[in-house]
Design a protein around this nucleic acid. Structure first.
Length: 276
DNA sequence: AGACACCCCTGAGAGC
DNA sequence: TGCTCTCAGGGGTGTC
């Protein structure tokens, strides 16, 4: 489900509900998500601590607590948060439930259990947890630029689409936005990295930033099950040019037909006429 | 280094 | 209506 714009949308929606609240308790309804849930560690980390900040790094959400503790959250493919009255009965797929001051309950709903919830420590207030050190730069940050992409694509033979989705290279782009950015830049997803020109790298960096910014503005993309905290859907879907549009006419050239291929086990969509 | 197969788990939609 | 099959935006491991 969620890539960078969806996680950013969720983060912004969570802030007004969480900032300044005290976490009184945490409960789990399953022993594990993608990884085992360590309930004692989660309790130690959160109990009676105040929520100081909610921020995003790539597709992760970091909830900073007092005492330089933090929750590291990942929504996987089907994760969604909800804030509701404490008395409300949990849904069948509510996996982690935090009790907040003010008799509110904050819940992670995750049918496929591909999400991640763990407690971690921060070296100093406002820092990122060390668990995220492996991540590449933020695609919307200044260090993701033409020079960076040109350098990192040299001497690599793998396809540019897989590189864009590699979180160690650039962190936050997933399957939807990789296809969309490549379409906007006019670059075929299967092109070998090393064959990209500097000019193409510039276009691709610009396209990545533009598509991510526009999607954040629209509150993300809802394909099947993405929802923000209040249950609202993202509005970016109607702006998708290629993703999920196999066999339909290209929005730009009107003559090409959008093609679907599989790369790294995931669907890729592109226009053979517009992308070279 | 990178392609590929397969794993985690559940639900939606298509086709019969 | 109900069954079976395929597919899904996340990340990870192991093999060649």
């Amino acid at each position: 489900m969620p890539e960078l714009p969806e996680v950013e949308t969720v983060c912004r929606a969570l802030r007004p509900h969480l900032l300044g609240k005290i976490i009184r308790q945490v409960e789990i309804t399953v022993p594990s998500l993608r990884e085992p849930l360590d309930l004692p560690a989660l309790r130690r980390a959160v109990k009676n601590r105040k929520i100081l900040d909610v921020r995003r790094r790539a597709k992760f959400i970091i909830v900073e607590l007092t005492g330089r503790r933090a929750l590291l959250l990942h929504l996987g493919m089907t994760g969604a948060f909800r804030i509701c009255p404490l008395a409300e009965k949990p849904d069948a797929h509510d996996r982690v439930l935090w009790t907040l001051s003010g008799k509110r309950s904050w819940r992670l709903h995750d049918p496929r259990r591909f999400g991640c919830v763990k407690a971690c420590r921060l070296e100093r207030a406002g820092a990122w947890p060390a668990e995220l050190d492996y991540l590449g730069p933020e695609p919307l940050g200044d260090s993701f630029n033409t020079g960076f992409l040109f350098q990192i694509t040299r001497k690599r033979q793998r396809s540019i689409k897989l590189l864009l989705m590699d979180q160690k290279i650039v962190a936050g782009i997933g399957n939807i936005y990789a296809s969309e950015a490549l379409f906007r830049a006019g670059v075929r997803p299967g092109r070998a990295c090393g064959r990209l020109t500097r000019r193409e790298c510039r276009g691709l960096v610009r396209a990545c930033k533009a598509v991510l910014r526009e999607s954040i503005q629209a509150g993300g993309t809802t394909i099947s099950d993405f929802r923000s905290v209040d249950g609202s859907e993202g509005r970016f879907k109607r702006k998708l040019d290629v993703y999920g549009r196999a066999d339909e006419a290209c929005h730009r050239c009107r003559k090409g037909t959008i093609r679907r291929i599989v790369q790294g086990g995931r669907s890729t969509y592109y226009c053979p006429r517009c992308q070279r």
